[in-house]
Simulated assay, not measured.
Amino acid sequence: MSTISMRRSVLATVGLAVVGGLALTGCESGDEASPAQPAASAPGSAPATSGAPSGAPSGAPSGDSAAPAGAPGTAKPGQVFKIGEAAEIPYDYGDFKGSRLALTVTAIEQGTAADLEGLNLGDKANGKVPYYIRFTIKNIGTTDMSYASVGHVKGLLGDGSEAQSLAVIGRFEKCKQESMPKGFANGQSQTSCAIALAPSAQTKVAGAQYAGNPYNAANRSEAIAWK
């Protein structure tokens, strides 16, 4: 994933594809992003989180072999957690293969339609209400995970269907999508956020799910969830 230079305006898009460099995460099934070390000339810039692998720092260690899903202490495919409960997951992407994380959805906060103003969504934002899925990531493995990024965190509507996701290029203060900092070693934690869109004010985002490897079956039955 390339580093995105700081822009004066914040851009976003919704849809089922990557269009003109603006990333949507609707039903994507790609790998987690492993962004390269940010250039010193772009402090504070936020990398896009489109879910496509793009390498990692050349010196990143490969770590030990991660426990597969279902191993003792590791979240089982389809397991459901309460908001605030940690799920231990393997992280097997790019140079970070063999890593382990504790992923915790800490809150799902309702925003307002006005939050979407200025994101250049046009008619795609009509009637939609953003929800902010806040989560923490803790390195519980032996791998230095500098600049890695956790994607595949999505919202769930009240009927259990997947909410549309929104990826923002640039800094969106309401929901900062953070990658892991330099020196992200065992025991360190990072907060991040994912945006889910409810189709109307009458429909709520009631839960969240993580559908990264190895919880990314096509029918979503193996995704782990928080409700």
Rank of each mutant, 00 (worst) to 15 (best):
residue 112 T to P: 08
residue 208 A to S: 13
residue 193 C to T: 03
residue 35 P to M: 03
residue 32 E to D: 12
residue 159 D to Y: 10
residue 174 K to I: 06
residue 191 T to F: 12
residue 106 T to Q: 13
residue 97 K to Q: 08
residue 11 L to C: 14
residue 149 S to A: 15
residue 201 A to T: 01
residue 103 L to F: 00
residue 204 K to N: 02
residue 106 T to V: 11
residue 194 A to L: 14
residue 152 H to G: 02
residue 49 T to N: 13
residue 135 F to K: 03
residue 114 A to F: 06
residue 8 R to T: 10
residue 188 Q to D: 00
residue 12 A to R: 01
residue 133 I to Y: 03
residue 201 A to S: 09
residue 48 A to N: 12
residue 25 T to K: 15
residue 27 C to Y: 14
residue 70 G to V: 08
residue 173 E to A: 09
residue 48 A to D: 04
residue 127 G to M: 02
residue 4 I to T: 10
residue 120 N to C: 15
residue 166 L to A: 06
residue 30 G to P: 07
residue 196 A to F: 07
residue 187 G to K: 13
residue 53 P to S: 12
residue 222 E to G: 11
residue 85 E to G: 11
residue 48 A to Y: 10
residue 161 S to Y: 04
residue 84 G to R: 05
residue 216 N to E: 03
residue 186 N to P: 04
residue 206 A to L: 15
residue 194 A to G: 07
residue 114 A to I: 00
residue 116 L to K: 02
residue 93 Y to I: 12
residue 54 S to N: 07
residue 6 M to H: 04
residue 214 P to V: 00
residue 183 G to E: 01
residue 179 S to A: 10
residue 159 D to K: 15
residue 54 S to M: 10
residue 40 A to H: 07
residue 198 A to R: 07
residue 207 G to F: 03
residue 172 F to M: 10
residue 128 K to Q: 09
residue 173 E to Q: 00
residue 26 G to K: 13
